[in-house]
Computed example of a mutant assay.
Amino acid sequence: MSFINTQNSNGVLTITIDRLAQKNALSLEMYKDLTSALMMAEKDDTIKVAVIKGDTTCFTAGNDLNDFLKGGSLTEAHPTVIFLRALVSFSKPLIASVAGPAIGIGTTLLMHCDLVYSADNAVFQLPFSKLGLCPEAASSAILPKLTGRVKAFELLVLGNKFNADDALQFGLVNDVVSPEELNEKVESVALQIAQLPTLSVRASKGLIIDSQKESINEVISHELKYFEQLLGSDECKAIIAGFFKR
């Protein structure tokens, strides 16, 4: 069973994370399906913009740790790594629609989206140090540019939760609306983009991001080396073992 649903309408591909019983935690199979959706959108000329969303009560609680640990080494063949590379290379506009928990990758993937809209019930967290791990998805490079170095250190190392208004202040989201208004807001913006001249939109995105892609991919690779080392540490193993005993 796939927990990633896609719908193509009026030039907009909506990618929905639908595993609410597990708070939309991302399994390896879900990463594969997310990558496939992005690749499909990339190749289909009728798709002008993509939207990634969860439910109005939950975006994603992050990695399904139990499944993630079964994935083996974090090489370029790992489903999570393949998804991150696809996220960075995606050449069409990508909009995120965020409500409820957006934990770990649920926050870091937003840094690769072109527009992010949040419901006022959203809760963001980057709990890497709490798990004995380190930043991923190039967040160690992107977040300091958004928030400044000291605030980025606070968010990535202390790992405390922050709300939608904080995310707006940090430059992580474009606007905050009620959960009831979120889908309509995102759909309206997506349709507006879909109706703009395609080549102009893609050229604009390319000018904004292309010069950064190489350095972002290098940061991801650098982070992965530390991440895998930490994942194998006794300290991290003890923390994760305690997590599963809860």
Rank of each mutant, 00 (worst) to 15 (best):
F3Y: 12
F3M: 07
N5D: 12
T6W: 11
N8G: 07
N10P: 08
G11C: 02
L13V: 01
T14H: 12
I17E: 01
I17F: 02
D18I: 00
R19P: 01
R19C: 03
A21L: 06
K23G: 04
A25W: 00
A25T: 00
E29G: 05
A37D: 06
M39V: 10
M40V: 06
M40G: 03
A41K: 06
D44M: 00
D45H: 10
T46F: 13
K48F: 07
D55M: 06
T56E: 14
C58I: 10
A61D: 09
G62H: 00
N63V: 05
N63F: 08
L65C: 02
K70R: 03
K70G: 03
L74F: 14
L74Y: 15
E76P: 12
E76T: 14
E76A: 10
A77I: 12
P79V: 10
P79Y: 10
R85L: 05
A86W: 01
P93T: 00
A96P: 13
A96I: 08
S97I: 10
A99T: 04
A99G: 11
P101D: 05
I103R: 02
G106S: 07
G106W: 14
D114W: 11
D114Q: 06
V116P: 02
A122Q: 14
V123R: 09
F124Q: 01
Q125F: 03
F128T: 10
K130D: 10
I142T: 03
G148E: 13
G148Q: 10
R149N: 14
V150A: 11
V150T: 15
A152N: 04
E154R: 02
E154Q: 13
L155Y: 01
L158V: 11
G159W: 05
F162L: 04
D165I: 09
D165M: 11
D166I: 08
L168C: 04
Q169T: 12
L172A: 08
L172T: 06
D175F: 07
S178M: 01
S178R: 01
E180C: 00
E180L: 03
L182P: 00
N183E: 15
E184S: 06
K185D: 09
V186P: 05
V186L: 13
A190L: 08
I193L: 09
A194L: 07
A194W: 05
L196Q: 15
V201L: 05
G206R: 09
S211W: 10
S211T: 04
Q212W: 11
E214G: 08
I216F: 08
E218H: 14
I220C: 12
K225V: 15
Y226N: 09
F227W: 15
L230F: 05
G232T: 03
G232V: 02
D234I: 13
I239R: 00
A241N: 06
F243S: 05
K245V: 08
